[in-house]
Design a protein around this nucleic acid. Structure first.
Lengths: 223, 223
DNA sequence: CAATTATTCAATAAATAAATTGAATAGGTT
DNA sequence: AACCTATTCAATTTATTTATTGAATAATTG
């Protein structure tokens, strides 16, 4: 193998992995799988794809070793192959948000529609936790909260928010978070809370980013 | 814009950027441009592509805002649009090297051919610098050394290595570095030095990775 | 062991990306 | 102003990727 063949081989392999990521649906799937394992049907529902199409995209990701499967009864659950997958994905996300002003603009414009201005980021939230003047709401589905959540966050899945307002104190700042910067659960929660008179904000990032930064979490102990 | 349109837009934009990276030649170009600005012809030579083909790939990268141009006399020089581009690229590289055992294997096998076993990584080298028992050789072209190099490294471009052996002490460990883990200049230098009786090793990473880690550098002051 | 359910495979058509060639452009130089 | 030189554009062919449909598979349950 000469030098050129060596380079062709190496960059070829890297390009394969990158290509496997370089599709809108697969980007969304990776973002979702960062929350943990999901069966094909749920992935299809979340992304609006057909089951067969979802399966094909998952095969593409699997061949590139970006996702792995675990069998659980009748279901096959897909999850990310390791933390490097999320790291790489987050790197691309940052790239998109910094240099492609359209992405940033669309996100900001959409949040305006929820009256969700002045969000806090993960570093802000960490400081607020130290000062103990904040209530943190995890508004993802309960299953995802159970797999792991921000230290001292309470689980209030978006569908239950209306019923559980009385347990949320108006005297403190409320920070809601969800799956990631493109997940809208937290925005919807903030819209509801603000309307009811709460001082509520969303955290711009999601739980996986909190984990990536090494900030305090509680994780599922069993299994 | 509804939720689905929002997500399609966001993930679509991210996929565009990722697709722009997801090609073997463009991967190699990004890796090269991490050293600084290069004109099209040099990029074509380094990658073995035709000028026209190189130009097309550069246009693709430019439209995705991954590279930017600066005019300098008759030449147009291309360089990375910012540090996030290198960060994202390095994230994909790690992903490829960790989960795709083929990449790791090819790199290791190729190094064996240079008798270049037992390399040091950036962290190792930092410790060796503290102990002052190492000579660091920057074996990239001089122009790249001039733009920035590891603190106290001396410039010995590969072509000049044979002529400059007498100035390199045999009493110390020699560590050579170059552009990155897939660059072969350092391997060739190590092969030559080892054959002449030196205790020489390569640093597995390259200069951009050293910078990314925030380790001590000397950079061009003028301009 | 047949039936059920979740998932994957195979085949096709439509869309997108790549390499090649030669012509066009746009700075700088004489 | 005419001429260089580096770079880009346009047009073509070939290769790859995507979505869709319906059939096939494989583990589980009755």
């Amino acid at each position: 193998m000469n030098k050129r063949e060596f380079k062709d081989k190496i960059y070829g392999e890297l390009a394969k992995v990158t290509k496997a990521m370089g599709n809108p649906h697969r980007m969304e799937i990776i973002d979702l799988l960062a929350q943990g394992p999901f069966p094909v049907e749920q992935i299809a529902n979340a992304t609006g794809l057909s089951i067969a199409n979802t399966s094909q995209h998952l095969q593409t990701l699997k061949h590139a070793r970006l996702v792995q499967i675990t069998r659980d009864g009748n279901f096959i659950r897909y999850s990310l192959a390791g933390e490097n997958v999320y790291n790489a994905w987050a790197g691309l996300r940052e790239l998109g948000m910094v240099y492609n002003s359209e992405v940033d603009k669309v996100v900001k414009d959409f949040r305006k529609g929820f009256n969700d201005l002045d969000p806090v980021n993960a570093d802000d939230l960490l400081k607020m936790i130290e000062k103990k003047n904040v209530v943190i709401l995890d508004v993802r589905p309960e299953e995802e909260y159970n797999r792991g959540h921000i230290h001292r966050a309470i689980s209030v899945p978006l569908e239950q928010l209306g019923d559980r307002l009385k347990s949320i104190p108006k005297s403190k700042t409320i920070v809601a978070y969800c799956r990631g910067p493109f997940c809208l659960y937290a925005d919807e929660a903030v819209a509801t809370l603000t309307q009811k008179g709460y001082n509520a904000k969303r955290m711009t990032e999601g739980f996986p980013d909190w984990v990536q930064k090494g900030y305090p979490v509680e994780v599922e102990t069993t299994k």
